[in-house]
Amino acid sequence: MKNIRYIIPILVFFLTVNAYSQRRSKHDPDKIRAYKIAYITDKLNLSEEEAKKFWPVYNAHEKKVSELRKEESTKIWRMIRSKDQISELSEADAKSVITSMMAIQEKYHKVNKEYAQKLKSIFTYKKILQLKVAERGFKRELFEKLRKQRKRVKKE
């Protein structure tokens, strides 16, 4: 009986934290991804055949870019953040950071070149430009929605 007195408050605490965290996570990556797919498909006016060829290439590219971002974050920015200030980095550490940054930028360039080559086999150059404009428009629209959502949350 004494154990129940201790267990119930702990359960209530964990359930409250869990419910709060679920309510706060409105930025569901799957929803954003679905919205992005719909947005780009609409803006490019993709045929079924084009979509079959395009989306696997696009998804593979997004995965590679995501992996590069993670690599950049873990290798470079953690090293910089591990020191309180950049002035605390030794010259050798700074050189290592710059060398790593340049290597990752080269990887980004290589991945983007490969992606462009694959896109050329699927789309015309005009359609590739439309894709770039659509991606930029999606980001702009997403940021606008996030900004409006933050304003709403602040008012509440």
Results as ranks from 00 to 15, higher is better:
K52M: 04
D93G: 06
S66N: 15
V17A: 09
Y35W: 15
K148L: 12
E88W: 02
V65Y: 01
I37T: 09
E72R: 13
P56E: 06
T74Q: 13
I8F: 02
R147Y: 13
E91L: 11
S121T: 14
R81E: 11
R81P: 06
L68V: 01
L129T: 14
D42G: 14
E48V: 01
L146P: 03
H109Q: 14
K155Y: 11
K107T: 07
V57H: 04
K70M: 08
S47Y: 00
I10L: 11
I10M: 06
E72T: 10
E67G: 08
E135P: 00
Y125M: 12
N18Q: 10
D30I: 10
I37D: 02
K151T: 11
A134Q: 09
A51C: 02
A38G: 15
T16W: 09
Y115V: 02
E49W: 00
H27D: 14
E49F: 00
Y58W: 05
E48A: 04
K148I: 11
Y39S: 10
I10V: 08
K26Q: 13
Q22H: 05
K110G: 01
W55R: 08
D84Y: 10
I10F: 04
M1A: 06
V111T: 15
I98C: 00
N112Q: 12
H109S: 15
E50W: 02
I37P: 03
S66E: 14
N18G: 09
I98L: 08
F123C: 09
S25N: 13
N3Y: 13
K26Y: 12
S25Y: 15
L129S: 14
I7E: 05
A103W: 02
F143L: 13
A94E: 11
E156T: 11
K52E: 06
L46G: 02
V17I: 10
A60R: 04
L119V: 01
V65L: 03
I4L: 15
R24D: 05
N45R: 02
Y58L: 01
E91S: 12
Q22C: 04
R150Y: 15
S121G: 06
E50C: 04
V111D: 08
K155N: 13
V97P: 00
I76R: 05
L15P: 03
K63S: 02
D30T: 09
I128H: 00
R23V: 12
P56N: 05
T99S: 11
V133L: 07
K26V: 12
F13T: 11
Y6D: 07
K70T: 07
K148M: 12
Y6L: 14
I4H: 05
T41R: 07
T16D: 09
R69G: 05
K126I: 12
Q85G: 07
L15D: 04
I4T: 10
K126W: 13
S100Y: 02
K75M: 13
S96A: 14
A134I: 07
Y125C: 10
Y39W: 15
N18D: 10
L146H: 08
D28E: 15
E48M: 01
V65E: 01
P56D: 06
I76K: 06
D93C: 07
K151V: 10
E62T: 07
Y115G: 03
K83T: 00
L146F: 08
I122Q: 00
R23M: 13
L68A: 01
T16M: 13
K64F: 00
K113M: 03
